[in-house]
């Protein structure tokens, strides 16, 4: 295991940030710590880095217990949310900082340092900015310089706190891809913190979902999406329709294809793409009314309205490709038949 966290707890006054967390991260993974604001993900990252002290529990890096080691001895690279570039230093000096503060006997020669810094700047494709100051750079450039600076000390693990949080949407998209490729080339065990599930799914090889200071689920993005461990994960990762047996007619659900034999709880979560619709040809009991639809690029999201148990209207969302939708020849107000292909049951 490259990074291990054992029974970590952390309180801020009465607030529990981390509640007895244990986590193992194998060598070479790119892991996302995913969760809503205040779930403790940044605190966990800072405890692994040694920027914050846990109330209890241990941190192991490459098998060594580092719980009592200060951050500077942990051989980690940390990229801060707002980059924390040194404002009074040029880009070059920023990246060279970690090499120049080493004790004299470990320090590299000036020529080697220069070469190394320029190599790193080339790696992040910003060598042409080497004599600029941080205030003269764009957000995306600062982010990449911060990464180059963290990589300069050849860290055994790389920790990134909301690496794309402060960037424009378009820059963010580009950088995600870039970070994935960079990780692929360098193969440094990396953890990044994010509250954006789409970002976690797109970039990470492993996703750890946190909520209220606890780990809800850990696994590959596909596993987590297809087999959410609980209702929180199911709701947090991707879109989902929620059918509560207290509010929905069990008979109706059975008619539309939900097998009550699989039932393990009384709440069913259904992904929009697991809902199939077609134009109603006869008066089946399964019909719903098509209210509206929105274009989401290659997909269409369809809003369907069904009258509930006590006459209350409930919205159900379905998704399908543009082509499929066009072939159905549907209009607003049409009655459609609905079928549920698959559901996750939770208590």
């Amino acid at each position: 295991m490259s990074i291990s966290v054992n029974n970590i707890s952390k309180h801020f006054g009465a607030f529990t940030a981390l509640d007895n967390i244990s986590l193992d991260i194998p060598e070479g993974e790119l892991v996302a710590l995913l969760g809503p604001s205040g779930c403790g993900k940044t605190t966990l990252l800072r405890i692994i880095a040694g920027l914050e002290q846990a109330d209890q529990g241990d941190v192991f890096l490459k098998g060594d217990k580092v719980t009592d080691q200060p951050v500077k001895n942990r051989q980690i690279g940390f990229v801060f949310q707002h980059y924390a570039l040194f404002r009074h230093m040029t880009v070059f000096e920023n990246v060279a900082f970690g090499l120049r503060v080493k004790p004299r006997r470990e320090r590299l020669g000036e020529a080697i340092i220069r070469k190394k810094v320029h190599d790193l700047l080339s790696l992040v494709q910003l060598d042409w900015l080497h004599d600029r100051y941080p205030d003269q750079l764009s957000g995306g450039q600062r982010q990449r310089i911060a990464l180059a600076r963290a990589l300069a000390v050849e860290p055994s693990v790389l920790l990134l706190d909301e690496p794309f949080g402060a960037l424009d949407a378009s820059v963010r998209k580009d950088l995600r891809q870039w970070l994935r490729n960079l990780h692929h080339d360098l193969n440094v065990t990396s953890i990044f913190v994010t509250h954006d599930q789409e970002e976690a799914m797109e970039v990470a090889s492993q996703v750890v979902v946190l909520n209220h200071g606890r780990i809800e689920q850990q696994g590959a993005p596909g596993d987590i999406y297809d087999h959410p461990a609980n209702a929180f994960v199911s709701r947090f990762i991707g879109q989902t329709n929620v059918f509560d047996l207290d509010e929905h007619d069990a008979d109706w659900l059975q008619t539309v294809g939900l097998s009550m034999a699989q039932q393990k709880g009384k709440i069913a979560h259904v992904r929009p793409h697991d809902i199939v619709i077609e134009k109603s040809t006869h008066h089946s009991d399964a019909y719903v009314t098509l209210k509206d639809w929105q274009h989401l690029g290659s997909l269409i999201r369809i809003e369907l309205v069904k009258s509930g148990v006590n006459g209350q209207a409930a919205s159900v969302y379905a998704e399908m490709s543009n082509d499929q939708f066009r072939r159905l020849h549907l209009n607003r107000g049409d009655k459609v038949d609905l079928r549920i292909r698959h559901a996750h049951w939770f208590h």
Partner: peptide, 10 residues
């Protein structure tokens, strides 16, 4: 965070 960055860089 600049201080923390410096510490994280050794």
């Amino acid at each position: 965070a600049m201080e923390e960055a410096a510490a994280s860089l050794g």
